[in-house]
Simulated scan of single mutants.
Amino acid sequence: MQQRPLGHTDIQVSRLCLGTMTFGEQNSEAEAHQQLDRATAAGIDFIDTAEMYPVPPKAETQGLTERYIGSWLAKRGRRDDLVIASKAAGAGRGMEHLRGGPRHTREQIHQALDASLARLQTDYLDLYQLHWPDRHVNCFGSLGYLPGDDSNATPLEETLSALKEAVDAGKIRAIGLSNDTPWGVMRCLQLADQHGLPRVASVQNPYSLLNRSFEVGLSEIAHREGVGLLAYSPLAFGVLSGKYLDGQKPPKGRLTLFERFSRYTSEVAQQATREYVNISRDHGLDPSQMALAYVTSRPFVTSNIIGATTLEQLEANLESDSLELSNEVIEAIESVHRRISNPCP
């Protein structure tokens, strides 16, 4: 599988990354290990997780995803062949079961990192990401920006300084952001240049045929500053497979099991999805593979984070790596996007 550079670091990652947020909720430990075995056998060496996983987040399951990866690493003994990424939760979002409410303070960054390392049974992480900003900001699909109270926000200088301490201690190799904005990325780069702090190597944001908002602002930063996208939700929670069209509710589908996930289910999103699915079928393609191949092909994407709940789904997702979309297919996709632009920001 093709390798791509992680920012300006010396780390190379596979252009498909295994997302793991179902481990511990929709997937058992044995199933998680099977997915990890199959993904790595196919050439994936990049695994992404987070301290708050699995999703939906609950106190009783928090940390299970990292524990399952850790038990697999302990069995397989091939840690140095892999690039392992995790994330520290930010403020709010109903995470009071994490340290009484997670923050990106110096103390909490070190607490979160040490706990993740223990669960993963490793001495270091290749990439450590801030899961969402510890400041007032619109993310996770919220539209518009209204000034809010940032008096209790953790200063970015404090957070980056704590991450530098972890880098210096050999606990992490590189840092990244997630669910962040052009201002957040550029501010972190500015602080790194001014104060000799770690430079952001990547930003993990949503990107799919239903949400191409990364292309506005952040894609230029990715190109000019070398802060590539780790694209999450490339299938929009499975919506782009077409399995939810016409009111279908597959019994084990995430949107069937968890009604709270409504970001990709609006009427206009269904309209766009139908058109994308029709394009794939007109050209003899699998809808999911077409959607994934499009994301992977974008020049600002460092790695495309695929996730699955069954080995069959994972196999289909892996096959997208060998799919090269024709100019005709890409133009058909762009035609839909011009008419129905970003129905799910």
Rank of each mutant, 00 (worst) to 15 (best):
Y145D: 07
V13G: 06
L64H: 12
Q62C: 15
A89R: 00
E312S: 12
G77Y: 09
L285T: 07
L16P: 02
E60I: 07
N278P: 00
A293I: 01
A231T: 10
P155C: 13
Q121W: 08
N278E: 14
I333S: 08
D168H: 10
R38L: 15
Q121H: 15
P234T: 13
I306V: 14
V216F: 11
L257V: 01
R173C: 07
P182C: 10
V13W: 10
T61I: 05
R199I: 02
N27W: 01
G101P: 03
R260Y: 07
D286N: 15
L6D: 09
A118L: 09
F23D: 01
A231K: 09
A112N: 08
E220L: 04
A112R: 00
G253F: 10
R281Q: 15
A166L: 07
G242S: 06
R281K: 14
L191A: 05
V227E: 01
K75H: 13
G24C: 05
V301G: 03
F214L: 05
Q62D: 12
V329Y: 07
A201P: 00
Q248T: 10
A115E: 11
L240C: 03
R106C: 02
K171Q: 14
H33E: 14
V13Q: 10
A316D: 14
G100Q: 09
N27Q: 15
T49W: 01
S208L: 06
G176Q: 05
L191M: 08
L130V: 11
G228N: 07
L240M: 07
K171E: 14
F300P: 00
A162N: 11
A115I: 04
S28K: 09
A118W: 05
A112K: 00
R119F: 09
I84K: 03
S151A: 13
V55Q: 10
S303L: 04
T49D: 00
G141Y: 06
E315P: 00
E51F: 00
L16H: 04
E25R: 13
P251C: 14
S326R: 08
A50L: 03
G307A: 13
P155Q: 15
V277N: 02
A236W: 04
N327E: 13
V239N: 02
S116D: 11
P133S: 04
D150L: 02
A118N: 12
R224P: 01
Y207K: 07
P102T: 11
Q194E: 13
G19D: 12
Y68W: 06
Q204P: 02
M1S: 14
L163A: 10
I172R: 00
F214T: 06
A291H: 02
A42T: 04
K164S: 14
G176L: 06
R103S: 12
Y145R: 09
Q190C: 09
M1P: 05
G92F: 01
L117P: 02
R103G: 11
A316L: 10
G90H: 01
G196A: 01
V203P: 03
H97M: 13
H8C: 07
A272G: 03
Q121I: 08
R103A: 10
L73H: 05
A293K: 01
I330K: 13
L245G: 01
F300V: 02
